[in-house]
Design a protein around this nucleic acid. Structure first.
Lengths: 128, 128
DNA sequence: ATAAATCTGGATATGCATATCCAATTTTAA
DNA sequence: TTAAAATTGGATATGCATATCCAGATTTAT
């Protein structure tokens, strides 16, 4: 349902939420979350660019959450590394309904919508 | 959310549901659903093995649904080609909760469950 | 019987998500 | 000022989902 990358990102930010006080290095997060350190490094870069976490370079550097866990949703994290794609238009060309969704894709998109809503309404604080 | 393969399988069986009377060749289905014919061939083989459709070899052969569209669910079709995997146990080794799910994976699995229920309760007949 | 149409199954190719590696840069502490 | 610790970003490798190709087997119509 969610990509491996999104799973890793969620594990990382949840661990950071548990250690709110200090800035954590890539290695510390990798050890705690069992994510391959080199790959985690890329994931943390994505989260940084998306503004979910802060990075601090140099000795004693590391990463920390930008906002308190109550204000960060699962949706925010997933979107930072692997954005959900809703079905905007029917993928078939030769169709009678034009760009409107056919029954199949209407149904699939409504499931996507429900999933998106579930992610939007879950904060990191609820996952500690 | 669902794989490309599952999407192709759904397009195929829905088209077959629309042409219930006759047996359709791979080419006919490929043309109607805009699925690459060689790949569709593999998808139809999976659906056959799973007992969702019948295959008829030889001249005038092709594929047809085993059951009426009212009795085939989206879940049946997806499961035939790309089974949904619920989260049975926490993917982390070093965890305090043992094989029980942590809050994150409990939440993710409940979303999976909701998705599974949506697919189980939708029949092909509703998608025509 | 024969030819044509069609499925079957194995081998192979392609593309993207996942994963690794390393040199360069930045920052802190002594 | 120097050394150590850490992020950054580019290059590269790996694995799996997706996609293609083709020779063989099966069935129908004539």
């Amino acid at each position: 349902m969610i990509s491996q990358t999104a799973e890793y990102a969620l594990r990382a930010v949840i661990h950071m939420a548990k250690c709110r006080e200090s800035s954590l290095s890539t290695r510390q997060i990798a050890d705690a979350t069992e994510v391959p350190i080199a790959y985690l490094s890329k994931v943390l870069q994505s989260l940084t660019k998306a503004g979910v976490i802060h990075s601090h370079r140099g000795l004693k550097g590391g990463f920390s959450l930008v906002k308190p866990p109550e204000d960060i949703t699962v949706y925010d994290v997933i979107n930072a590394v692997d954005p959900m794609k809703r079905i905007e238009s029917c993928p078939l060309k030769n169709t009678s309904h034009g760009k409107n969704l056919c029954p199949l894709h209407r149904r699939l998109d409504s499931v996507l919508e429900a999933t998106e809503n579930a992610f939007r309404s879950t904060t990191l604080a609820e996952l500690l």
